[in-house]
Nucleic acid binder design. Structure first.
Lengths: 311, 311
DNA sequence: CCAAGTTACGAGTCACGTAAGGATT
DNA sequence: AATCCTTACGTGACTCGTAACTTGG
């Protein structure tokens, strides 16, 4: 009668528990997670309790709800696992549906704003004039998640890295480098460093910075690359619009780091603004194309070919 | 009363279903999977049906049981997901237990047989004389799985690659390159090519090869690296012992590809055998150290430091 | 015709909801 | 006192096992 008699109920870590755990951790609240997931708050409590009793570690501190050290560790795994579950579903489901005639492209602001995407899309529309193209701009996280889920055919993301190193695999998504260019810091013309032909990143550690994590590189990332403390935020910009960010920098609210191809001074000639290249350390702004398995001869595959290096 | 009324039962892809699916696919049989998993065969049938009805794609052909195209795709994702689930469990659980005083190292035959491991272990035992060390030799797959599960503290795996390229991330495990050396083909002294100072891989495509996937590189991999067809198996060796494989090669049963450091002719001076370096294409035999999160000052961390390049 | 997967059906379990009970601010 | 999480308890859904059925070699 009883199926499980030998070994106890090991391996109770099921996907649903992880989904709940991630949601609770993100929202910092059992009740909010309950609303979002469509459970009662008691159910959430029970699920977290099940997870904790299975792993025999407290995962969340209560009041306020924050991940414990073990919980933080689990969070990283859980997010990757859930994303790959989505990717698996999208990947398998894709084989059923007829190849769609439309193309949905996602991009982070700076990736979509680089010259590569408009050029590639022009070439693509010349070959496929009737193609219905949608471009969606969002955060890096949003783009990656949506690509994994198959809601986007391809995604363009951007970020700062050392010139050489490869990015880690991400939920079985293919990543191709589209472009790599130097970086420049945006300064009001009145700024003491505005006259310089180039700068070192460490020279800017003590300046006032604009924290704009959804558009530019997070300050923590800049700090890591520079290898020194500093880069403290004097202003926070939570939007997704590059131009707004540049205008804030022009108005003297703080510095921001952009790819040197952005050339804000030509886009905004009337504002007293200048972009000074940053030469040390060797850091590049890289745009990457991300996609799951692409169907042969699909619009998405054609776009990927157009965006790939040396085409 | 009914919690799920709006949206139907989406997201039924739970870990248990994937475990069952992977097992069935591996064993090629519902009933065998039932035995292995401790279910009845009917339950397996129902689980697979649930998965297929959720994804709305047939995943397995029946009679004989083989993955469909969609099933093959899912299989890759599922294996990665399940492994990462194990890794998550191990990673989180590790924080609970006291740091163990023993060290369990896994290695593939050629990785464990390279000079690096014995040397590093000597140094380690000099520093920690009372340390209880276990070395376990298994297939690459077994080593990786066990490291992810936390059954092994660290693992050494080996394989052939182009000199530059990085290996993809694997279930959040850290991979460090321990050594990279050239490769050589093992020939009986009577072999027509035995006199050459070096060889190109393509010269060997039409030779008789020993398929020894658990020790040497799989022939399919060699074929891929050479870029030509051929490398057909004339003999199959399913064991894990390098010396047995070399003796088979010496006896003329076929060729095998080993790291040039293996020097079988010095290990077996009495047999008429010689190892000829393979120079084209540029392929190296790389040994990699794999591990999850290591505790500071733990034996495993010390060993990792000893094995890491330039220490 | 036998081996092996599917379907039908009943039963036990488990997970959820309701509601009452703490704890912390 | 209010908010938020936990615990207790009952019920319904779900998944598993038994067993009969079906299909392919």
């Amino acid at each position: 009668m009883v199926p499980c008699d030998s070994i106890s109920d090991a391996y109770r870590v099921e996907a649903q528990l992880l989904r709940t755990f991630v949601t609770v951790a993100r929202l910092g609240s059992f009740s909010a997670a309950a609303v979002e997931l469509g459970y009662t708050q008691a159910a959430i409590s029970q699920q977290i309790a099940a997870l904790e009793s299975d792993l025999k570690v407290p995962l969340l501190n209560r009041r306020p709800v924050t991940p414990t050290e073990a919980g933080g560790r689990l969070l990283q795994h859980a997010e990757a696992i859930l994303l790959r579950l989505d990717a698996a579903r999208a990947d398998v489901t894709r084989m059923t549906r007829a190849p769609s005639a439309s193309l949905v492209v996602g991009a982070t602001p700076l990736a979509g704003g680089s010259a590569a995407l408009p050029l590639a899309l022009s070439a693509l529309r010349q070959r496929l004039p009737r193609l219905d193209v949608t471009v969606q701009v969002g955060t890096r996280d949003h783009v990656l998640t949506s690509v994994a889920r198959g809601e986007l055919d391809v995604g363009l993301t951007d970020g700062l890295t050392a010139p050489g190193d490869q990015l880690p695999e991400f939920a079985a998504l293919t990543a191709v480098c589209v472009s790599q260019v130097g970086i420049a810091v945006v300064l009001p013309t009145g700024h003491p460093l505005a006259g310089r032909a180039s700068l070192r990143l460490t020279d800017l550690a003590d300046a006032r910075w604009i924290a704009a994590p959804q558009v530019a590189a997070p300050l923590a990332e800049i700090r890591r690359l520079a290898g020194v403390e500093g880069f403290r935020p004097a202003f926070h910009y939570d939007g997704l619009d590059t131009l707004s960010l540049i205008k804030l920098a022009a108005a003297g609210h703080g510095l921001t780091l952009l790819p040197e191809t952005a050339r804000p001074e030509t886009a905004l000639p009337e504002t007293g603004i200048i972009a000074v290249p940053v030469t040390t350390p060797r850091v590049v702004h890289r745009v990457e194309l991300m996609h799951g398995t692409l169907r042969e001869r699909s619009p998405a595959a054609e776009l990927a070919a157009l965006l790939a290096p040396r085409d």
